[in-house]
Design a protein around this nucleic acid. Structure first.
Lengths: 346, 346
DNA sequence: CTGAAAGCGCTTACAG
DNA sequence: CTGAAAGCGCTTACAG
């Protein structure tokens, strides 16, 4: 009967009994070891080990009035979910262990995020706070959560008011600027740009970095084009760009899919990527890896760690601990930079 | 002070007070509505609504001795995580809501899954059960969990003994056979195969379906090749395959990346995919979508729903409810089929 | 049909 | 430094 559940589980009382101390002493040994005499401590800890005792998180939650969990929404409607959504969730999950908490994903089939989904999680004491992703101009969630007094931290700046809230983001401009520097160093003389249609905050930022880069480095500014995030359109836009370039030139792209478009257009005319033409993508996505593209990797582990720290500081009430951290650059060749905002007020 | 937490939350006592009944009546109204007089019931439910009351899941867990949560491991080490890992987790998360539970992801940086990771989650009462993914021959987890009496259900058959445990899987052979039928119908006359090197259970299964398909349908069997799951090697293997094929022929592939390799090799020699050469992938991954590949989509929602049902049946102790469900085919053009094993004993 | 009692497992003051 | 008390919020028997 493999599926029969054990009738009882090891509780703090079992540990106390075996160790010959009171249950409070066991609790102290675990939560305030400095209060327990060393011999007692080591004996208790040994029994904990022997019995594989782990405090019930439910009992802890009830007592602490804190779930010890952070929620995050999974996009269940996007036809093409973000390439880095899974790596980021994995990074959060790994960081959560270090913060003695766990992640609770949730999803809905509604086209737009629902405040009620967030509120329900908190009302049921399933989570204490949230990590937001895919923020965008007009995103209602930061205001909702602030209004409701629910702590959160965001991967992606809070566009409507970047001085508000706690967030970490990749410095897109710094990234594309680095890409230009990299291409200049490698020996390319003219560097063009393929981005998204003007008007997207992320896209404009990345384009600005390219513009700055070609100015500051010893390269000529090539043509700039744009295409939406779809491979056929990226290829078409890349064709137009390549018409104005020659072998020996390079293109910085605002995304890996766009870079893939350039790669395919180049292959189509017999130019060898990485030799006849330099190409850089952005995001460090699986697509880039699959196609061997040079790309700007987002430091997801650092971002996840930062956001969870910020969330915990808020929960602990130490508002200032979460402030500052203006710039947290990860400037090695393959990494983009992270910036977090300086909070004026809290 | 947006981050100040509310001093108190709405509890069952608040509802009782406002509704003018005892707290037990509120509990009954929620959990056993048939026990409450209709007028009382509707009054209580109205107050629940007004106050946005939600029972504390921690208190419920403590009382029920059940976490109401299912754990699932995120692969934190694979260089190239599975393309469908995120869509599947999303499907699980969505299904979990229907089952009144939630998913708790966990991850470790160890190269191999650790039994202790699974056990700890259960000892802390964080989860009641697990959903396994990426099962493979020699996978120690099913035996571990059975030994430990921890319920689980697996996406991917339990290779070492498919008659054991509860799992759901895509019928790979049926899928590739469907692909052959589709290509035959479309008018291709010779159908080759590109798979993984022999010896992988999944790969061999998919190849068998192709072999069966070319036998049963009015097409000639083309050459069969293999390559590991890497684009450059897929392209190389595809080149060899195309050397033996002519325009008007087709290739069934064991994965989307392999299909992409065929697509690129075809483009390289000026063959138009979908016209001069038929290509089918497998998995319905974002890569296939990006490159416009025909692919066999896995019915992830059905699989997730099935696994969670099976897990809950186990927890409820109704062993037989989880049995049977031998074949659950989703045979439309774009879907592969799901099979779940018939349990001999439980 | 409704209500008072007991207890799930833990930790935080508080008293010795 | 250690131990007895109270209570986090809920639900399941059980008694009215």
């Amino acid at each position: 009967m493999p599926n029969t559940r054990p009738a009882t589980r090891t509780t703090i009382m079992d540990v106390a009994r075996v160790a010959g101390v009171s249950r409070q002493t066991v609790s102290n040994a675990i939560n305030s070891p400095e209060r327990v005499r060393p011999e007692t401590l080591s004996k208790v800890l040994q029994v904990v080990e022997d019995l594989h005792y782990r405090p019930s998180s439910a009992a802890r939650t009830l007592r602490h009035q804190r779930a010890g969990a952070v929620g995050t929404e999974l996009n269940a409607v996007a036809a093409q979910p973000s390439d880095i959504a899974l790596p980021f969730l994995t990074a959060l999950t790994l960081s959560a262990t270090r913060h003695a908490c766990h992640m609770v994903p949730f999803a809905s089939k509604e086209a737009f995020p629902l405040l009620s989904g967030y509120q329900d999680m908190v009302r049921r004491r399933l989570v204490d706070a949230f990590v937001l992703t895919d923020t965008h101009p007009g995103d209602p969630r930061p205001a909702w959560l602030e209004e409701a007094g629910i702590p959160y931290a965001s991967f992606g700046r809070i566009y409507d008011d970047p001085t508000r809230g706690y967030w970490a983001d990749v410095d897109g401009a710094a990234g594309t600027k680095m890409a230009v520097a990299h291409l200049a160093e490698t020996g390319y003389r003219t560097v063009g740009f393929l981005g998204w249609p003007a008007g997207s905050a992320v896209g404009d930022d990345r384009r600005a970095g390219w513009a700055q880069g070609v100015e500051e480095h010893d390269v000529a500014a090539g043509p700039a084009g744009s295409a939406p995030q779809s491979l056929p359109e990226a290829v078409r836009a890349a064709e137009a760009l390549l018409d104005e370039l020659s072998p020996g030139d390079a293109v910085v792209c605002a995304s890996d899919v766009l870079a893939l478009g350039v790669q395919q257009a180049a292959l189509g005319r017999g130019w060898r990527p990485g030799a006849d033409i330099g190409i850089t993508g952005f995001d460090g996505s699986p697509v880039a890896q699959l196609h061997g593209l040079t790309t700007l990797t987002q430091p997801l582990n650092e971002i996840a760690e930062h956001l969870l720290t910020v969330v915990h500081d808020q929960l602990a009430g130490s508002a200032d601990a979460a402030q500052g951290t203006l710039l947290l650059p990860t400037l090695d060749a393959n990494n983009s930079t992270v910036i977090t905002p300086k909070k004026g007020t809290s």
